[in-house]
Design a protein around this nucleic acid. Structure first.
Lengths: 174, 174
DNA sequence: TATATCATGTAATGCGTTACATGATTTA
DNA sequence: TAAATCATGTAACGCATTACATGATATA
């Protein structure tokens, strides 16, 4: 729905996006995409129209008013600890749609809570590594270490991302 | 199976591991774990025994010879591009079991191919950000940027991890 | 004795994957 | 005209999630 909100898309468009672009590593299988589109349509969140642009028919989906409300609600959900631990990919996919849907303030609010949760979880990982690391195998300890480094990198990113937004705000409102 | 190989585990043990430890963020729901254990048992990869240690019965699973062979085969599968793009968590979970199953040489071989695939994919992400970034929204570009930074961090980690193994080899065989 | 924790399951539902299928339109 | 690509689906299967259920044993 985020992609359809940015621009009307057919099922085939989405397949190509998932297969060729790095963002949102979702499945590009037709058995996943077409039924999902029909489900969203039956719920009234998107609406498909056949388009004949010279060639053959393409069923192009657009977001509806209830769909936009649903998308806003999804993007507005607070960042939880469980999101940070197990659904980081989904969080970043959500964030990529943020300023098109919630605006800069929404995106900045998201980044602030993400930074807080990331800081907490990263500290927990570091503590776990300090305490349990010595008793683990080399590869076990190193795997945990990779989690620590990945989350540290995300934490640094969330801070520079917030600064990027702050610069863009002061720059446009002199 | 990796966890059961390290140490015999009951379904409840696994639930607690998944719920409390940071490694391998798998589901701790009983509806996922118990049927999965029974499937592995029916395939002959693990074997459960009831144990009565003073308290009530616990069904403790151990790995079998075919199960160990299967685990070795799984851990020996080459690192593919798709693994790096969409299954990085699984790769690190696999790696955490490596030197208990394949030994240091196996773990080092894994790290070398992982480093190669990570370097390729990271370069692709950087190129995509350079080319497509200017046309994207701020949050879209930043989300992509987080992917770049995360993979750069993993790439650095894979190199230091390899050095850690090399030091441990020269240290023990003077 | 009530509550929390230990320990193991089952049932309904939904969804993803894999594989198969179809027909139209470019390109070689 | 053969092959690749466009564009959209269906069917079988497996598995995860959620919620419910059970009984035993510690702990308050």
């Amino acid at each position: 729905m985020g992609l359809i909100h940015q621009q009307a898309q057919s099922g085939y468009d989405l397949r190509k996006l998932f297969a060729t672009t790095p963002l949102g590593s979702y499945s590009d299988s037709p058995g996943a995409i077409y039924p999902a589109l029909r489900r969203l349509e039956s719920q009234g969140f998107i609406q498909g129209h056949d388009e004949y642009s010279g060639k053959r028919a393409r069923c192009v989906f657009r977001i509806t008013a209830p769909g936009l409300a649903q998308l806003e609600a999804w993007l507005s959900q607070p960042v939880t600890r469980l999101d940070v631990v197990r659904r980081m990919d989904e969080l970043l996919a959500k964030f990529s749609f943020m300023d098109g849907v919630l605006g800069k303030e929404g995106a900045m609010g998201f980044l602030r809570t993400l930074e807080r949760e990331l800081a907490i979880y990263t500290a927990e990982l570091e503590a776990y590594l300090r305490e349990e690391g010595p008793g683990m195998s080399i590869s076990g300890r190193l795997a945990l270490d990779s989690g620590v480094h990945s989350h540290q990198a995300l934490l640094r990113w969330s801070r520079t991302a917030l600064e990027t937004y702050q610069r863009s705000l002061t720059g446009e409102a002199p």
